[in-house]
Design a protein around this nucleic acid. Sequence first.
DNA 1: AGAATTACCTGAGCGC
DNA 2: TGCGCTCAGGTAATTC
Length: 267
Amino acid sequence: MPELPEVEVTRRRLERELVGKRFTQVMLRVKKLRLPLPAELKEILPGLTLRAITRRGKYLLFDCGSGWLLVHLGMTGFLRLLRSSIPPGTHDHLDFLFDDGHLLRFHDPRKFGIVTWFTGDPLQQPLLSDIGPEPLTEAFNGGHLFDIARGRKVAVKQLIMNSAVVAGVGNIYANEALFRAGIRPDRIAGTLTLQECSQLVTSIRSVLEESIAAGDACRVAEESVTYYPQEYKAYGRGGKACCCCGGQLDEIRLGNRSTVFCRSCQN
DNA sequence: AGAATTACCTGAGCGC
DNA sequence: TGCGCTCAGGTAATTC
């Protein structure tokens, strides 16, 4: 599923290919994903030049000059960049055609994604206004996390998956970062020391950065695909051997999310 | 205010 | 073979 690294890798690929190009046509094949698709995109976008592509958490922001195209890939969404006009398959919900012949196609079986349009300041947009600091910036640091965690009774894994605390940390990387930091996912957030918070921030940053680097290095001919081979040390490995101590990894549910950790390596 | 729960959606994997 | 069930999970909305 697309997490922050996949979204960032997608952003970089699309930025390389599409910035400066002009929209020529939009095709909508469904009325709504998680939110209604603005039908007026068909009239608004053609003629506009794509100025930039930025990211906030897992949201992609396409700067179209007079407004913004906001895209979230949800659970199962991805964007493909095609050179020629290949007929759409099932779940190919949306096409954007550009003046250089590129076709940007949004595919999403579960329709958990979002594609919408807004004008004005992105920071004022309701979907973006309450998102916490970006994990790869200095604004997200041990002191920040420690301040937020104090007095909180939720499990630390749920805290770092809260988008108001830090942007774009989903289930996979929450599991991986806690494993790397040596902190149990079910630790009550308020019991973390400043040092542990700093270690966790460092781990979140490094797992995300390593995954982005792996994605950038993974070239897929012709198409820009958001998925790439990825090995995890905790996520999806419940019951298997811990790569550090050889013990059996535990799997529990936290906030109805699959959670994997090592009882001897994480405290 | 913070925590917990629900809704949205469909493919995959399973038992019978 | 195929039916029905459960699970997967990001995030907003709702409830406690």
